[in-house]
Simulated scan of single mutants.
Amino acid sequence: MAPGKARSHRSAHPTRGATRATVAALAANLAIALTKFLAWLLTGASSMLSEAIHSFADTGNEVLLLLGGRSAKRGPNSVHPFGFGRQRYINAFLVSIILFSVGGLFALYETGLKIAEVLRGEPDELLASSWWWVPLVVLGLSLVAESVSLRTALRETHSAREQLSIAQFVHESRAPELPVVLLEDSAALAGLVFALLGVGLTLLTGNGLFDALGAGMIGLLLIAVAVLLGVEMQSLLLGESATPQMAGVIAAALTSTPGIEAVIHMKTVHVGPEQVLVAAKIAVAPTQSAGYVSAVIDAAERNIREAEPMCTYVYLEPDIRRAVYRAARGIGSGN
């Protein structure tokens, strides 16, 4: 492969795979949320209500991600000259807020109410219900559905993350949808385990405190995931550079262009998950004409976009390396 033509493993557009994973998670979460809510109505189990709210929140989150992807497709205008790609980051950040408030804080609130009921000695609705077995069935089916959703997300991320671990992929990915779905599905599976333990131990021991503790663990889990997601999305909103792999490909595309002697310095920033702005100062020969330099810049821009199609905006500034300039002018090192 010719120099400058090597493709970074980040160049593959993940939007299609992200959309499939998001739609799969949306369908799974909506169905699960309805069954969990029904189980709570029948039994009054706090863990089931916390899980139902969690699943409804996740359903709303998937809708937000899909809407963000749709809004991000709008082209640039005079007010937003670099387009609307960051809309996807904004919606993903809203997801973290929903997870924290609607999911995590509500679960902790429900935990407090349940513990107060247990301390007052009030009869436990789950233990008194003839439908006590329903939460166990719902949680079992939910585990299967969430596992399928997580498997879909993992399959869609396989080509994108290559040798990266899931944790590294979540941290390094510049596209928010797949990391969000991965975190949500992982949290959902862990939350189901907590709920199953809470309900199961309550039924085995006759102590409603276990159900309350299960809801509390779900709340703490969701808050932890929300904080992690919020930190990652905040970094993307502030503007992250291209990955080292992509930056290397861009630099190689520049230096392989005839007429460019070196890259003096280069800066990149994601203006969207699949839109990168490149600003670089390049060294050219001091004896070349303006017309020649202009042609070199045009060729360099073409090379960059061929090597990395995500480089939507490219701004190159020609310059002369100081040592070369001094030599061309015959200026001694002591002057």
Rank of each mutant, 00 (worst) to 15 (best):
P3T: 10
G4S: 05
S8G: 07
A18N: 06
A21E: 01
T22W: 06
A28I: 00
L30S: 13
A31K: 01
K36Y: 15
L38P: 00
L42A: 14
G44Y: 10
A45W: 14
S47F: 08
H54C: 00
E62C: 13
V63C: 07
L64Y: 15
L65C: 06
G69D: 10
R70V: 11
K73S: 12
G75Y: 07
V79C: 07
G83A: 09
G85L: 05
Q87T: 13
R88Y: 11
Y89R: 03
I90V: 15
I97G: 08
I98W: 13
S101M: 14
V102Y: 11
G104C: 12
L105C: 14
F106M: 10
L113C: 09
L119M: 11
L119S: 10
R120L: 13
G121Q: 02
E122S: 14
S129Q: 01
S130K: 10
W132L: 04
V137D: 04
L141E: 08
A145L: 12
A145R: 01
E146I: 13
L150Y: 15
R151M: 13
T152G: 08
A153P: 06
S159Y: 15
R161P: 11
E162S: 12
I166V: 09
A175K: 01
E177N: 13
L182Y: 02
D185K: 05
S186I: 06
L189V: 13
L192S: 08
A195W: 02
G200P: 09
L203S: 00
L209A: 03
F210D: 05
G216Q: 03
G216Y: 01
M217R: 02
I218K: 07
L222G: 04
G230R: 00
G239C: 03
T243F: 14
T243N: 09
P244K: 03
P244L: 05
P244M: 08
P244C: 11
M246Q: 09
G248S: 11
I250L: 10
A251L: 09
T257N: 06
M266Y: 03
T268D: 07
V269Y: 13
V269F: 10
Q275F: 12
L277V: 12
A283R: 05
A283E: 12
V284S: 02
A285E: 12
A285D: 15
P286V: 08
A295P: 02
A295C: 04
I297D: 04
A299N: 06
E301W: 06
E301T: 10
N303T: 04
A307T: 02
P309H: 12
T312F: 10
R321E: 13
R322M: 10
A323M: 03
R326Q: 11
R326N: 11
I331M: 06
S333C: 07
G334F: 15
